[in-house]
Design a protein around this nucleic acid. Structure first.
Lengths: 195, 195
DNA sequence: CTCCAAAGACTACTCCAGTTGCGTTTACCT
DNA sequence: AGGTAAACGCAACTGGAGTAGTCTTTGGAG
């Protein structure tokens, strides 16, 4: 009574096992502590197989990232653009603050800074996120809360950028207040029509 | 006729040679391609000496970063906060776009994402940069261009954040227009009093 | 000028990430 | 069912990062 056989046999099981092991290792040891051997041992798949199919750590990251990108992203709907934008930014902040998800998310960013393949995967990931999150801005435009000249995805970028900047560039702590302020700043700029 | 002897003898020369070699290797091969052996060979200093004094790649990066932090940062003075802010952000953008400085600067960011020591060094670096750049905002407040409730360094952060976000998180290209727009957005938020 | 302590150079070693070649298993196809 | 090609497992090997011990050089002090 195998789970299911149609979408693939052994290979599919191996792939899934490795993906899960990668995420688990990432959560435990972070990106710096991620090794192919540990992933292989945890997944029960042999070391050489991982090297052949994934090519190395970068491949593991890209694959896991692709998996993460398929998961849906909750879009806030508080009724006002102010609340929605704050919701989006807080979601980002809390995601990295989470002791379980945080290290995994951070690992993706870390990997992308070094490996071009991971960078491409992360680029696509964020393109999708921007597109989805921009929904809150489009709704606001329809409601007349914002001028229709604003670029919806640009508002999202400017809103979340300070959080990422603090986390991965300046390496400063990010409080809830910081997140709200970033969202409010993006909103003020959008209202002024500069975005 | 040695350059100068007071500030130290052999050790000082070794340290300087290694620092320069680190920067040169960083510019050529980036952070991913940086190895202790290459730095040692280029500097003419033995491998073991580098390991003993710097401890490894992280130490090399931290040391080079400390050196970079001592260099002065040009503060724009165009007469208006709008021009000054744009100048600050453009300076960031052009720094990373430069074919020589870009890889080095990027390497610092990459290193800091992985190594705590480099992260600390980069944190201090940006703290100093924020403090210096905030000057343009403080002048604007004095001139009455901005309300005196605004947080000068926060305006800087919000202004430059989208550039870094595009470069190192979303991995999107950054145009001059993007940089100007980010500066304008921060200014609009500051005028609205939300920063 | 001579001596000495600190710092660097050198050699040889260890250890582990990544590779290679080959044997074995597995899913799919007729 | 049986055959086959792809995918996986396995063990041995390679290469380079990092370490340890020892010798040599250097810069300063009396």
């Amino acid at each position: 009574m195998e789970p299911q056989k149609r979408p693939g046999g052994r290979s599919a099981r191996v792939r899934e096992a490795v993906r899960q092991a990668t995420l688990a290792e990432l959560a435990e040891h972070g990106y710096a502590g991620l090794t192919v051997e540990n992933v292989a041992e945890r997944s029960g798949v042999h070391k050489t197989t991982v090297y052949r199919r994934w090519g190395g750590i970068e491949g593991l990251i890209s694959d896991a990232l692709e998996l993460a990108g398929e998961e849906p992203w909750p879009i806030p709907d508080t009724g006002s653009i102010a609340g929605d934008l704050r919701g989006v930014v807080q979601l980002v902040r809390s995601g990295f603050a989470d002791p379980e998800l945080g290290p995994v998310s951070s690992a993706f960013v870390a990997a992308a800074v070094q490996d071009p393949a991971a960078a491409k995967a992360l680029h696509d990931f964020f393109a999708a996120r921007h597109e989805q999150s921009a929904q809150v801005v489009r709704r606001a435009i329809e409601r007349g809360e914002l001028p229709d000249v604003v670029d919806p995805s640009e508002v999202i970028r400017v809103a979340v950028a300070p959080v990422y900047y603090r986390l991965f560039v300046a390496h400063e702590p990010v409080s809830e207040h910081d997140a709200d302020r970033a969202a409010d700043a993006a909103l003020a700029a959008a209202r002024a029509g500069v975005l």
